[in-house]
């Protein structure tokens, strides 16, 4: 387990360093003058010189890369061009909003998706299985922000059941929950289908195995076998796949935030694009990349903890 953990940590660091290099290349290898691009064509020459000095653009590329990597590793993501606040602080204060939305979305998807997947396996290719399959496949590719717009039209504009905009009053938990329902619904729906399909496929495979046949021979009921013995094993690939899909989940949450005008990484990035506030925009990219790598590492470790086979394979 120790060598597996070390290997995973090393791999995660490599991935993170390489991802930061890609982001660095993106900013510093732009054709044309970065100062003009960042400040817009109307900026004066003096402004451009000041910008180049501040961003270190007058130094060689290697020096710039070294500084960039060093700053990122120290947690210094630069300062907001408009408010002069540290970018890390801005991103970190937006992050909890996005994290809560993503986790609530994933949460209800897990709670509904696992039972749906289990129900499908009661009678494979029966009418219930087909119905759940049709539903899962239909929702799986629907863009979350589109669902958000439709949910907004149905539940806020037409029925007026739920609030449309913002994240609710800070102190009032009930109000915040009411504001969370529609966005979480939109973020999670595709995942209900995704998880239901994964659980179904994984559970069907597990139910074919020898130890399950042995349980049957001992006269244990199918229901008990499925829940007590097969489902925990069937969940292993599901956990691993959820880790890989977290990036999609975050992308979905980012757009849904913009639809519901909720504070969070999405709104932060959208404002930064409009204001051409590059440090903030790249800060959100760097932080979410790091988060994704950490989340992936965590799910890999959980999968390895539950299933010794994964440790031995690699």
């Amino acid at each position: 387990m120790l060598s597996f953990t070390l290997r995973q940590i090393l791999l995660s660091i490599c991935v993170l360093v390489s991802a930061i290099t890609i982001i660095f290349c993106l900013i510093y290898l732009v054709p044309g003058d970065p100062a003009t691009i960042a400040l817009g064509p109307r900026a004066s020459e003096a402004q451009k010189v000041a910008f180049r000095q501040e961003m270190g653009l007058d130094q060689s590329l290697l020096v710039q890369g070294w500084h960039f990597a060093g700053n990122v590793l120290r947690g210094d993501l630069g300062t907001d061009l408009l408010t002069r606040q540290p970018v890390l602080q801005l991103v970190m204060s937006a992050l909890p909003h996005t994290a809560i939305l993503a986790l609530t979305g994933l949460g209800w998807a897990v709670i509904l998706g696992i039972p749906l997947g289990c129900l499908s396996t009661i009678k494979p290719n029966g009418w219930l299985d087909r119905l759940i399959g049709l539903f899962s496949t239909s929702v799986i590719a629907m863009p979350a922000f589109l669902l958000a717009i439709y949910a907004l039209i149905i539940f806020s504009v037409t029925l007026r059941w739920l609030p449309a905009m913002g994240a609710g009053d800070g102190g009032d938990l009930g109000d915040r929950l009411m504001h969370l329902i529609l966005p979480a619904l939109a973020v999670g729906l595709a995942w209900v289908g995704y998880i239901a399909r994964l659980v179904r496929a994984s559970l069907l495979e597990t139910l074919q195995e020898n130890h399950v046949r042995t349980y049957r021979a001992f006269g244990i009921s199918n229901f008990r076998i499925a829940l007590r013995f097969a489902l925990p094993i069937a969940m292993i690939p599901v956990v691993a796949v959820i880790g890989v899909g977290l990036g999609n989940l975050l992308s979905g949450a980012v757009l849904v935030e913009v639809v519901f005008a909720r504070p969070g990484l999405g709104s932060l990035a959208q404002d930064a694009v409009v204001q051409r506030n590059f440090p903030v925009l790249l800060g959100t990219v760097v932080v979410t990349t790091a988060l994704y790598v950490i989340a992936n590492f965590t799910t890999d470790m959980i999968a390895a903890l539950i299933d010794p086979r994964i440790r031995k394979e690699s």
Binding site: C14, V15, T21, G247, V254, L255, F278, L281, V285, N296
Partner: peptide, 16 residues
């Protein structure tokens, strides 16, 4: 590492 870049945010940065 390309896969670990958040697609929408990354795309926003590139477009910007």
């Amino acid at each position: 590492s390309v896969r670990s870049l958040p697609m929408i945010l990354f795309a926003l940065a590139v477009v910007a």
